[in-house]
């Protein structure tokens, strides 16, 4: 048995609506610090948090986009963006996150198959 598993954290909720994204990122960082291979997938409204220059503090929330910057230090592997995101939003996201990987809707199952565990938030 291996002590390292690949985990896909699958984000589906809008950034400021509840604490789902914050607690998902807490789990991603905790898993990465236990040497797990962690990647994140952003779907639909969750992709809004990838846009630059946000001020979540103004609505009483932690600045998660800042935490995203720490991902490489934690060894978090890949960021995936589900391809049905609106084009203008996608362009902004690609400008901010150069290495984000776009996944088409019909590639979702094969993406899931690459991981030992998928946890949806």
């Amino acid at each position: 048995m291996t002590n390292t598993k690949s985990i896909l954290i699958y984000l589906t909720k809008a950034p400021m609506a509840n604490s789902a994204n914050q607690e998902a990122v807490d789990l991603a960082l905790a898993a990465a610090s236990f040497e797990q291979e962690v990647s994140l997938l952003f779907e639909g409204d969750a992709s809004f948090q990838l846009i630059p220059n946000q001020t979540p503090e103004s609505v009483g929330r932690k600045n998660l986009p800042k935490a995203f910057k720490a991902f490489p230090i934690y060894g978090i592997q890949d960021l995936y963006l589900l391809g049905n995101t609106e084009e203008s939003l996608k362009a902004k996201i690609h400008a901010e996150h150069k290495n984000i990987i776009e996944v088409a809707n019909n590639e979702l199952n094969s993406l899931f198959e690459k991981f030992d565990t998928v946890i949806r938030f």
Binding site: N3, D26, A31, F34, Q36
Partner: peptide, 11 residues
Amino acid sequence: GLGQLVEANIQ
């Protein structure tokens, strides 16, 4: 802590 979830997932 969350480590308990990560450890369980490994096992």
